[in-house]
Design a protein around this nucleic acid. Sequence first.
DNA 1: GGCTATACTGGTAACGATTATCAGCAAGCC
DNA 2: GGCTTGCTGATAATCGTTACCAGTATAGCC
Lengths: 137, 137
Amino acid sequence: MDNASAVSRRSRATRQGGLVRDALAADDKFRSAQVVFGQLRSKGEAIGLSTVYRHLQALADSGDADTLQNAEGEALYRLCGSGEHHHHHLVCRQCGRTQEIEGRGVERWASEMAEEYGFTDVNHTIELVGLCNNCSG
Amino acid sequence: MDNASAVSRRSRATRQGGLVRDALAADDKFRSAQVVFGQLRSKGEAIGLSTVYRHLQALADSGDADTLQNAEGEALYRLCGSGEHHHHHLVCRQCGRTQEIEGRGVERWASEMAEEYGFTDVNHTIELVGLCNNCSG
DNA sequence: GGCTATACTGGTAACGATTATCAGCAAGCC
DNA sequence: GGCTTGCTGATAATCGTTACCAGTATAGCC
């Protein structure tokens, strides 16, 4: 109803920006820029590919969207409720359903490993990909 | 001395295959296909880009090489001593130095998460990227 | 050592995702 | 209504990777 909720403070509120955000908001699945573009176009929306990429990146930069890369190296996006809060994902490789998961233990393990081998400023990428209970039949 | 150690059983032993393997064997860092190609060419070796890609993939497929993707989605390769044995990496984002690490705990955590949310056949990608003690100065 | 079948090679074109360009358009402000 | 300037989007350009396919070299056989 009101995707104007988080309107401009430093940037303009545009129709296209709303379209991209709405497309992601439709469900909690990860999708690629190309898919978002295709969905919007097939709904008859007038929007350019460049614009879709721009808004997706903006969302990712601002922390409003999560990002991950599929096996082909394609970037996938999803709206992220938890803001800055650090978390990981359990993604269904079939239907794309996504479960946010937490890993205190993993965070700890990563720090321990970093320390053990003298590494600093360590980032970790951790994604779990499998089949959800709907798709594993 | 003898990169002919693991010779053909179903495939031919070619000069180019040896070159690619040797390039990886030079050290334990991850490198991209483009880099391997560049290194070989600048050493004056005659080899084609396609061939480099082919051999790197073959090595990865046979389990003789580890693979990971950098932030730009480029594929990186490294010879892998541990064969089939499952492990992860702690990679220096500056010099590329790589430390193989084990994560019994992480494996367990991944299984637990999978089970908790009803996911099956779950793969995980876990990479830690930071600065090694040489580069963090 | 020479011969042959065929796997391997590599230059080049094609591909797919992403980014850069830049003239035209429109949101926000007076 | 008019202006400024950020936003848009068609198109070209990038970049890593893969497909093609005619030419070449290897393994095996004589």
